[in-house]
Amino acid sequence: MLEFFTRYLGIFIVAGLIALYIITYTLNKKTPIPEECLEDIDKAACSGCHNFACAHKG
C-alpha cells in the first residue's frame, strides 16, 4: 500500500494542487467585490483582451 502511494505521489500532489486551485478560484469568485472598487473595474475593462490591468484600451 505504501509502495503504491510512493510510486504515484507525484500524481497525487499535482491532483491535490489542481483541487486547491479549483477551491481557491471558486471561493474567490464567490467573494463579492467591494462596492467602492466596482467603478474602477468597469472603467478599466475593455473589449480587447478583457484584462483589467492592460493599458491598451480601445
Binding site: 481557491t24 478560484y25 471561493l27 467573494t31 463579492p32
Partner: peptide, 8 residues
C-alpha cells in the same frame, strides 16, 4: 486567487 480573496 487566495491573496485576491483575502484582500477583497
Amino acid at each position: 486567487q487566495l491573496v485576491e480573496m483575502i484582500l477583497k
